[in-house]
């Protein structure tokens, strides 16, 4: 296995190993909507493995709550409850476990989504790396809205709720001691209230929602483009990349479009409702700097392109394995 960095290899792993073994389940979405007769629910689960466990802007506990809430929100669901499972490595300081659990509790209280059950396992030293968290989330769908990765249509606008690149650079900097910690903090936060406001304003005009986590905006849009059989055209000048992130990415040789986020979302929206959706986003703190960053186009090749500052177009693609230079 060498699939840790996300991107195309992870997609292949899912498509070729995991999905077939699970009876061909389609794993395009991050959460599944289930029809239970009279009731409909949305279900998701996510495991959290992060080094370091504490980083500027958050920790693994907050991340485990926000990540799962956001996966529900991206299907247009109102999160109702969370389950939390720990895998702990023998020797993990109890103090750390206490801090992380407090952080889980704080995040869940702030989001208004309670942790209702859970499980704890301890493995021997070396059997895990400190602590792994798995959160499962249950939500109820919003009436008259069904955002889906398959929903994008040519002509739709692409909206971004806030700046990109913060989480990934903050984690990398903290892990490797690169010194950007003072200026760059993770953006981890729950987005379900933002989504609720967007759906109230745009309803079924909100065609697709995605939180661009691992693989960044590039991955999120590539997945939407493929699932919806469309192309996406971004305008590089309109992408909100905070200057410290831009500087760090430049020095580290990273593409901000490929860096992970935990507190923003990308929405593909019918142009008719876009102004209302944008207003609704801007009225909330987590969407205060929402912007239009591109549009959906017809493209049989389902590509994502970005208009550069000089007016040409570059291909936006997903990382394949480790990032190795393609320049000769």
């Amino acid at each position: 296995l060498g699939h840790g960095s996300g991107g195309q290899l992870m997609a292949e792993l899912l498509r070729e190993v995991i999905a077939p073994a699970l009876g061909g389940a389609e794993l395009v979405e991050d959460a599944a909507a289930l029809d239970l007769g009279p009731a409909r629910v949305v279900l998701t689960t996510d495991s959290f493995v992060v080094t370091p466990r504490f980083f500027p802007g958050g920790d693994i506990g907050a991340l485990a709550v926000h990540g799962t809430i956001n996966d529900l929100a991206m299907r247009g669901a109102r999160p109702v409850a969370l389950c939390l499972a720990y895998v702990l490595e023998e020797g993990l300081p109890i103090e750390e476990l206490r801090r992380i659990t407090t952080s889980v509790a704080d995040a869940s209280r702030a989001a208004g989504v309670p942790v209702v059950t859970g499980d704890t396992k301890v493995v021997e030293r070396g059997g895990a790396d400190g602590i792994y968290l798995t959160t499962t989330g249950l939500g109820v769908p919003t009436a008259d809205a069904d955002p889906s990765a398959r929903g994008a249509r040519p002509g739709d606008l692409v909206l971004l709720s806030g700046p990109i690149g913060l989480h990934g650079t903050a984690i990398l900097s903290a892990r490797e001691g690169l010194g950007f910690e003072a200026e760059i903090a993770s953006d981890t936060r729950p987005l379900h209230r933002l989504v609720a406001a967007m759906l109230a304003a745009g309803g079924r005009g909100v065609h697709a929602l995605r939180d661009p986590t691992r693989g960044g905006l590039a991955s999120a849009l590539t997945e939407i483009a493929a699932a919806s059989a469309v192309g996406v055209e971004l305008v590089e000048a309109d992408l909100p990349v905070p200057p410290p992130v831009a500087a760090a990415c430049d020095l580290l040789g990273l593409d901000p479009l490929q860096v992970a986020n935990e507190g923003c979302l990308v929405a593909v929206v019918d142009p008719a409702v876009a102004p209302a959706v944008l207003d609704a986003m801007r009225a909330r703190p987590e969407g205060a700097s929402a912007v239009v960053v591109g549009r959906v186009v017809d493209d049989p090749a389902h590509r994502v392109r970005a208009r550069t500052l000089v007016g040409s177009h570059r291909v936006v693609d997903v990382l394949v394995g480790e990032q190795l230079p393609r320049i000769c």
Partner: peptide
């Protein structure tokens, strides 16, 4: 100075520092 130190750190920690046996 900051850039040199950052590069030193990147090399020590192997952060996006692919090794190359390149003439160019």
């Amino acid at each position: 100075r900051g850039e040199v130190e950052l590069v030193r750190r990147m090399i020590d920690r192997g952060v996006n520092c692919p090794p190359a046996s390149s003439a160019g």
